[in-house]
Structures are given as C-alpha cells and as structure tokens.
Amino acid sequence: MVNVLAAEVGTIMGDAGLTILIGLVVVFGVLLLLTGVFKLFGMAMSVGGEKVKEAVPAPASVAPVASVAPIVGNTQPVQSTQEIQNGIPAETVAVISAAVACMAPAGTQYAVRGIRKA
C-alpha cells in the first residue's frame, strides 16, 4: 500500500516536474531567441541609420531648433535650453508645460527641456 502510494507520488511529481522544466525552457528559449533577434535587429537599424546620416546631412528643417524654454514653476524661473522639433506649434508647448505644472507638487520647479514627435 505504502509502495503504491509512493509510486503514485513519484509519478505525479515526476510528470509535473518535467512539465515545469519543459515549459520554462521552451518559454525562455523562444523569448530569449526573440530578445537576441531584436537586439541584433535594433543594432543593425541604428548602424544603418548612422550611415544614412553620415551620407546625407540632415536637412535644416528636421534639425532641432532652440527656442525659448518655458519654465514651469511657482517661484523662480530656471534657465535651460530646450529642444523642440520643427512643426510643433507653440500652443502645444504651452499645453504640455501647463500639464507638467499641474502634476508638479506645489513649490517645485519644472522645466520642459525637449519635445519630440513620437
């Protein structure tokens, strides 16, 4: 009786343990492969992008332009440089700055240093 129970316990534990092992190995294996593939892919894309940049100088219209940095804060303004891509209207900058100001705890200073299109 004890032997039968021990055999049953052994069978269930063995099967379940094997399932854990297979499952984790396969899930990690597939996602590790995807990690590697997309890591390489990202590197290839960034290298390709740099080459393109070297070959063709970026047109002036795409380059970030400096503009007045609206400092959002309750007390003192903080000087900073800000990078805003062309094509982003001043109203958008104002709205984003206001949104950041609303989230900020009272008395703290925040500066919007850059806005780029996604």
Partner: peptide, 8 residues
Amino acid sequence: PKSFLLGA
C-alpha cells in the same frame, strides 16, 4: 528587447 525576458 531585454524586456522579453521579464515577460518570460
């Protein structure tokens, strides 16, 4: 892409 591992 390391995030894949966290998902795993």
